[in-house]
Design a protein around this nucleic acid. Structure first.
Lengths: 313, 313
DNA sequence: CTTGATACG
DNA sequence: CGTAGCAAG
């Protein structure tokens, strides 16, 4: 991690800055400069993947800087996966998981409803060494597509996180040697293509849209093994995907390449133009179907509300 | 570990220097100065406990300095326990274990037969947190007493190692808070008393004999927890026990207090006066009973010869 | 390579 | 507190 963060420009007054960051253990990242990064970046909303937290680590980030903090921890495997979202903006609602029993035990999804959009923070399951969990991953991708569609019935979506896929050859340094590696199988790539969809109801990979020619500048992950970072052997695994109607408001997506060191991923930032209604009280979400494990928004950790399907409680 | 070892006197020409050292992982100890210590100490024979080696680590210590190297590694739990002996003197025979099925799977005993004595290098099993393995430990102590008696039928014994007991109150800093702690239970203390025995056929705790008043200077173990070393909260767990007839030849036992750092134990050194017959070819051992897993002495690792009782091969 | 959890000391 | 080995990425 750098010691000075002069390269981080001030957020324009007409924008929100949203950040996604796979921290590969929040505790470890804190020892390696995460807090200094967060102070310098100072986004309006930040979502973290692989916190590896077993319960909310409230002490790590000040409630003053981020009054709204949400945690989703794995209930099955300790010290595994886990997500968190810290926000300066109060969400109208927060929910945990996909509302799909069997997919909600590892703390992978937190959804915040803001005034004009849903913010879905996600850590997509890795297909595993030798693709042992590829089937489960494919199932996940399908369910996530449905979930986003459900949300889009009310508002457009910002879908952010470590999506654990390099979509195209341009998105990783070594496509040819990774055709059957987790994150670049045809199944995962097609799954992402399907999730993006096409036409009027499609979703957009905001970084690709704005930086179509980006190569290594777009990589967000550099494995610790074999000096990948120095050799620029990276993958683009972290994304902001937005519902098409929202794309007009996306000013830019930045890959914080300089911020390598606290994790094997780097943070990515999305600048989203503010719009009327953003900080207003939101209308209540409508259908049961699109509201898994809904809670009335309130500050504080929440880590035991998922795993049940809509309609089961 | 110190950087200079000026405090280590040259070994007198009429003596052997034998060393025992619980290294708490030989690999880790090597990163923390073990090799430098060994070069400076330069004993004739050194026995190590808790090597945590899964196979002979021949590369760690030069065959030139120690042409005779013997390893006894745990066969059940990986990275657990394990002993080794390095010698400049060629032993007539080497054997592994106690010849007691059930006690020989963890690589805890190596016996070298020299010209005038048997050298038994041992890592006695810890009774465990909450004394969960105290019964097994008591069984061990009994069997070890028998084993030494069997050896003594031919030659006196030097029994060295981490015996995992503080014999008397003087042997640990906090006797009163450790009456039911592993290493200071009445069962373990009585077991050691019984092993020493009395009268003509007794064995002698050489350090106690020569330094009866020693307090903290005698401690050989300082747990890593709670700054035990700085507070001198230690235990004397490492011993040289000699068959009574050998005590006349024991010039001194030194606890190398300065050598803390490569391990949570410190090395101990015994100076043994040379005698006629020491480096001569030894007479063949006689009875089956006292010869578990005997091999003809030869340089090189040996890690799969124990676990069978005498007479089974 | 790095993390966390576990067993053991 | 520190080591090893494991699973995971």
């Amino acid at each position: 991690m750098p010691k000075v963060y002069d390269f981080i420009a001030a957020t324009p007054g007409n924008c929100y800055k949203l950040v996604s960051y796979n921290v590969n253990s929040l505790q470890a990242a804190c020892k390696k400069g995460f807090k200094e990064y967060l102070s310098a970046e100072n986004p309006d909303v930040i979502c973290l993947q692989e916190t590896k937290a077993n319960q909310p680590m409230a002490f790590l980030v000040s409630k003053k800087q981020y009054p709204f903090q949400y945690w989703h921890c794995s209930k099955t495997k300790k010290g595994y996966a886990g997500t968190a979202v810290f926000s300066k903006i109060e969400p109208a609602r927060v929910s945990y998981g996909l509302g799909a029993s069997g997919l909600d035990t590892e703390g992978r999804v937190i959804t915040l409803e803001f005034g004009t959009f849903h913010f879905v923070a996600c850590y997509v399951p890795n297909a595993g060494e030798k693709l042992v969990r590829l089937a489960r991953r494919v199932e996940w991708d399908v369910r996530m597509g449905e979930y986003l569609t459900e949300l889009e019935a009310t508002k457009p979506v910002v879908y952010a996180g470590d999506l654990n896929v390099a979509h195209h050859e341009i998105d990783l340094a070594r496509p040819d040697t990774n055709r059957r590696s987790a994150g670049f199988t045809v199944e995962e790539r097609d799954g992402f293509t399907a999730l993006l969809g096409d036409g009027e109801h499609s979703r957009i990979d905001a970084f690709r849209k704005l930086h179509p020619e980006a190569l290594a500048e777009g990589y967000t992950y550099f494995g610790y093994r074999a000096n990948c970072r120095e050799k620029s052997v990276g993958w683009r695994l972290d994304y902001f995907v937005v519902s098409r109607p929202l794309m007009d408001r996306v000013i830019d997506v930045i890959v914080r390449n300089e911020c390598y060191g606290a994790s094997d991923h780097v943070p990515i930032a999305l600048y989203l133009e503010k719009a009327d209604g953003d900080e207003a009280e939101s209308a209540p979400a409508s259908s049961d179907v699109c509201a898994p494990q809904i809670e009335a928004a309130s500050a504080g950790g929440k880590d035991d509300s998922s795993g049940s399907s809509p309609g089961h409680d």
